[in-house]
């Protein structure tokens, strides 16, 4: 495999894609948003349970490629317990990491494990896979119970 393919399909991504964390329905979710990628028809549902402006619990369901499943899985593990504004700030960092040319300005400490997704930026056709769950999350935090698209 070429180098950038290796960067894209790091073992962590393949593992999360195959065995996603927090992959279930959340019965007591206070916000539920479906995200669809019209390019491929992939559909996932993000459940968020908010308690005093804090993400008390978060989970997701759906089907998709390794990138979209791993991104959603990593997102849920990164955001559990975070305040809404911290989660939205992280959305911004992840979005920048996925869509902008690599730079040193991104806060690697805050991105943590999510940094394994940075290889996606070399594959513009796949950015929507990685952002799908995050767009659904943002919509959920903004109080919109609707179908969102990663277009």
């Amino acid at each position: 495999m070429s180098n950038d393919l290796g960067d894209l399909y790091q073992q962590v991504i393949i593992d999360h894609g195959r065995h996603p964390q927090n992959f279930h329905r959340l019965g007591d979710a206070t916000r539920t948003v479906e995200g669809v990628n019209p390019l491929c028809g992939d559909l996932l549902t993000v459940y968020v349970k908010l308690l005093d402006d804090r993400i008390d619990d978060i989970a997701f369901e759906g089907a998709g490629c390794a990138i979209s499943m791993a991104s959603a899985s990593l997102m849920t593990t990164a955001l559990k317990g975070k305040r809404c504004e911290e989660a939205l700030a992280l959305f911004g960092f992840v979005h920048a990491m996925l869509t902008e040319t690599p730079s040193d300005e991104l806060p690697s400490a805050e991105l943590g494990k999510l940094a394994v997704l940075s290889g996606v930026s070399a594959f513009p056709m796949r950015v929507k896979c990685a952002t799908l769950a995050w767009h659904a999350l943002r919509s959920a935090l903004e109080g919109k119970n609707e179908l969102v698209s990663s277009e």
């Binding site: 393919l5 491929c40 490629c65």
Partner: peptide, 23 residues
């Protein structure tokens, strides 16, 4: 088995093989 068509498409692309994936 175990590999989503989009992932197949991306890896094949880097081998010069152009296929369509999706619905």
């Amino acid at each position: 088995d175990g590999v989503h068509p989009h992932d197949i498409g991306t890896i094949l692309d880097r081998e010069g093989v152009a296929i369509r994936t999706g619905h």
